[in-house]
């Protein structure tokens, strides 16, 4: 997917607090929260960046 921006979630425990805010607002339902692991479906994600705004601690980066 060369035309898509890279997607990076800082989920090594340094920023992400596993609250699920991004999961709830993702319009394409492509973010998954499993206890202390968050994953994205990169193929479905359109990089709309709604999750970036919804994250209370700034743990999601797209760019």
């Amino acid at each position: 997917m060369p035309n898509k921006k890279s997607l990076h979630i800082e989920s090594s425990g340094q920023l992400c607090i596993y609250c699920g805010a991004c999961v709830g607002i993702c319009p394409l339902n492509c973010i998954y929260l499993d206890e202390t692991r968050i994953t994205f479906d990169e193929k479905v994600c359109t990089r709309c960046e709604v999750c970036v705004k919804a994250c209370p601690v700034g743990a999601i980066e797209i760019g």
């Binding site: 607002i25 709604v50 705004k53 919804a54 209370p56 601690v57 700034g58 999601i60 980066e61």
Partner: peptide, 14 residues
């Protein structure tokens, strides 16, 4: 609580 549409930059809530 901060309305998501009024978030200006990442981590605004914090």
């Amino acid at each position: 609580g901060v309305q998501v549409s009024q978030v200006k930059s990442p981590a605004d809530a914090r």
